[in-house]
Design a protein around this nucleic acid. Sequence first.
DNA 1: AACAAATCCAACCGCATGGCC
DNA 2: AGGCCATGCGGTTGGATTTGT
Length: 289
Amino acid sequence: MGRAPCCSKVGLHRGPWTPREDTLLTKYVQAHGEGHWRSLPKNAGLLRCGKSCRLRWMNYLRPDIKRGNITPDEDDIIIRMHSLLGNRWSLIAGRLPGRTDNEIKNYWNTHLSKQLKNQGTVPNTRKKLPGPTQRVPKRRKNDSAKKEDNNKKVNKSKTKVEPVKPKIHQPKPVRFTSLSLPRNDSFESNNLSTITSIQGGEGGFGAEIVVDVPWDDFKSNQENGVSFLVGDGDHEDYLVNGTDLNQCRHYIEPTENNSLEKLYEEYLQLLKADSDQVQLGSLAESLLV
DNA sequence: AACAAATCCAACCGCATGGCC
DNA sequence: AGGCCATGCGGTTGGATTTGT
């Protein structure tokens, strides 16, 4: 199947966005809504590729973008979710309101992957690294100041927004269409959700399972043996339900302190403990939103 | 002060996917 | 069925900034 380039690239602006371009894009999207990215630049008077417009809007101009440091809570969630989902940045971002997949990806690549290495844990596989720990990357300016600098670099008119400590617990019913699924996902079932976060608990991994479906639906699917997806980024994703958990434990290599082992034990207990009876159909409907 | 190295992140790029015709 | 469009995703890069020497 042929594929036309997203834009001719001839005569189009590239590189950092100017305040004027930001204003044009913001006003246009506020007036007409998101979408139609291909035709947007022309209609908005921008000499930009539609893809570039979408990226700028999604990663920078959207009003619900949260700026400032990644908080320890967010940091923790990112690490936990990455251990389950691998590099599914958009899914991880879906659990962190106001954070973009790009931001999380960058944060992971520049901070967390090194951090985990320094702790002796290889990202994704969570294997212990042989040999001495590497040096801890030194912090320079604090992140918000750094971010402000970068904002200046790109857009001097940007005003600093104080970071807000996130509250991320009850799963929000985020978009759950096929488009939200990574292209290499190996599952097709309609009766399928995706574990996108494990949070809470002391020390290592906790016990609260968060999914991208309404909580009641999630509970109902525990009851009905619906599968959930677990992956570590290096292997094929793994379908998990109550009976698959033992397999799952074998599939993912445990860390030295067995934190994943503990995680799945706790998850298994959750599955057993839940006694609510809800019809399965509600989830299927939610998946078709 | 000057230079090199390291760090960071916005933006770019290529590709996959779904939908429409 | 196949071509094309629109969009989303994840990997990579460019270059400004900061830190070290």
